[in-house]
Design a protein around this nucleic acid. Structure first.
Lengths: 245, 245
DNA sequence: AGCCCGGTCCCGCTGACCGGGACGCGAGAA
DNA sequence: TTCTCGCGTCCCGGTCAGCGGGACCGGGCT
């Protein structure tokens, strides 16, 4: 039995459990918003019959939508995803402060957490300008190239080895409690970020917040750093884990 | 045991497929953001061992997070959900207009679709005031009590029978192309909404947009209705399905 | 026509999943 | 203290849900 050539190419050591199969299928939808059976088969490496059966089943429970012969992620998944975001304690606590930061500065405010070497955005408050940024709620960006990412890395024992220059910057960030991104992710865009941590290095950061905008505007904003630090401190106070047990 | 009563799902007709089991478990997390094994068992009616096995498995693939002994919905689901929203063509087309509406009026702009008797919000653009509204991206509200909902109902063959008064209102809405919500969902809040449809009743509505705010402010806004209608028309033009086949 | 590609459906085989139940633990109650 | 209850975890033999090769159909090419 020769495995079919894959569209995306990734080692597929034969999924065994039903759950793994489902996950693999759902994951296949990243990067293309409509897939036919044949495409799913190529991407997942699953046998045609199996893929077909599972797709139909997922469509029945509305985890997928089926339109003619192409499948898309369905409403049920959107709803569950929205639930996750909504149920997040940190997000809840941060929301008013993000709005405040945006309102006062006119810049885009973010909330993000660290996941391995990437940041995942939990919230984003901004105006039309915000749509130009690559950050998306529920989206990922490499941590080392974002303000929030560096703020988080500086306050977390990093798993992998990092480049010399970055380590130096992280040490500096850790000391000052503020991270900067000067056009590293997007040309012309700068960010100022702070981790949400307890006073005096008590444990890892819960998340980080940042404020981003055109370099000129960010540089010109008075007292931005301390505003952000203050917001982060307030968020910590209302979202901090109560008992470490 | 007053708690147990609340938690018990209706007599389960025994789920057969693995997918059904998974769906049932995931669904159990609606309404409570952290569940222990025992709670999941009570809510789903699944056997303890099975529930335990599936929960662990879902946690492995990050569809759930496990913290000590309580499970929560995990990041992977959040990411998938965000993908769905992000991949939506209508949302893409509507976003700039929602921002524009918000910027010009200072009110909260929505984008929503109809699902049976409820509306599901796809986007929401607003300021801090917006957090006071019950609308949430990915959330549901009864269609008959919202502006977007009525705009959509008016342009869709309604499945179930509706009350006399509502039918009359819908006919009126259909004629004018504009729906109103005068404090029906939230006291003190009014909305003006328009469906995203082709000119001249060509097919059902793709979605609907609305603008909401304090009654006074909404009533005072000049030319709100025509602004919204115009935005809806523009969105239709860029998002309309190309070929009805 | 002949060919290819994609979707659907069938059906006998089998190993992934099932779930009752044993076990250990910690928190009250006796 | 000891008993008990509820909880999470783990085991293991039985079995059926799911598997997947392959037949079939239809449409779009050459």
């Amino acid at each position: 039995m020769s495995i079919a050539v894959r569209e995306h190419a990734a080692a597929a050591p034969t999924p065994v459990s039903m759950i793994d199969r489902v996950v693999r299928i759902l994951d296949a939808f990243e990067g293309a918003d409509g897939l036919t059976l044949a495409q799913v088969v190529r991407r997942t490496g699953l046998p045609r019959s199996s893929a077909h059966r599972i797709l139909e089943h997922l469509a029945e429970v509305r985890y997928l939508r089926r339109d003619e012969h192409t499948y898309r992620l369905g409403m049920r998944i959107m709803e569950l995803g929205a639930l996750v975001i909504h149920q997040d304690r940190v997000r809840e606590a941060a929301a008013p402060h993000l709005h405040q930061l945006h309102q006062v500065t006119g810049l885009v405010a973010h909330l993000a957490v660290l996941d391995d070497t990437q940041v995942v955005y939990l919230d984003k408050v901004g105006n039309r300008f915000g749509t130009l940024l690559p950050s998306r709620v529920g989206g990922r960006l490499p941590a080392a190239r974002t303000g929030v990412g560096k703020a988080l890395l500086a306050h977390t024992p990093h798993p992998g080895p990092l480049p010399e220059a970055l380590l130096a910057e992280l040490a500096h960030i850790r000391e000052r409690g503020i991270a900067h991104d000067r056009e590293e992710a997007v040309r012309g865009v700068a960010c100022v970020a702070a981790p949400i941590v307890g006073a005096g290095d008590s444990g890892p950061a819960l998340a980080a917040i940042s404020v981003c905008g055109p370099v000129g505007q960010v540089r010109r904003a008075p007292g931005l750093a301390s505003m952000i630090r203050q917001a982060a401190a307030r968020i910590w106070r209302t979202a901090a884990p109560s008992v470490p047990a």
